[in-house]
Write a protein that binds this DNA or RNA. Structure first.
Lengths: 93, 93
DNA sequence: AGTATATTGTTTATATTATAAACCATTTTG
DNA sequence: CAAAATGGTTTATAATATAAACAATATACT
């Protein structure tokens, strides 16, 4: 059986990646609402994805309020695709 | 976003369920080899699946060596199917 | 104007989970 | 008979996810 990338095999991180795979970019607040997560949890998981190079995080302080903008990187996109392939071997689709 | 049943969203437990979905039954040794897990880890995860009623465990001591035989229950089968459906909303298949 | 509340996060603490190490009973092998 | 293998379980440790507490600024209220 193939191994499931542990970084992606987490509900919240998978949700974030899933969203980012389908949009150019998404900010912290949007991700928080979409995933229905707490800010703390989201913050931690975004850091992990960024540390692995799966997403790019840009902190924009130019506006009145801080804004954290995330987008998936090529590495992240490939990892996600590989994860999905591995997953398919568990659930027969 | 739908929630992913935490009991199934674990690599080893998912692997076990995935195997059991496709066979009548499987014993401890077979599951251990297929999943390449340690005995301790497998023992714990099988217990969890059994506690949730997802699998039936029959301990056969009739032979020379003990034998632990597992099979998926109806509850487990339904939970697995639901899990897969939820998962599909994350990875667009 | 000054205080209260909301926004946008981060950091730290706690609970849960997964994993591995240690152990036990029996059985086979040399 | 002693040593190793089989088939596990129990307990300890490491990793992870989650939540609670905190901080800095911005907006709203009186």
């Amino acid at each position: 059986m193939q191994e499931l990338n542990p970084l992606l095999h987490s509900q919240l991180r998978l949700a974030v990646m899933s969203i980012l795979m389908n949009v150019e970019e998404a900010d912290f607040v949007y991700l928080k609402e979409k995933t229905e997560s707490t800010a703390g949890n989201l913050s931690v998981q975004l850091d992990k994805l960024a540390s692995a190079g799966y997403i790019n995080i840009e902190k924009d302080m130019s506006g009145k309020r801080p804004r954290t903008i995330c987008s998936v990187s090529d590495i992240g996109r490939n990892a996600f695709i590989e994860y999905v392939e591995a997953l398919k071997s568990y659930i027969n689709i």
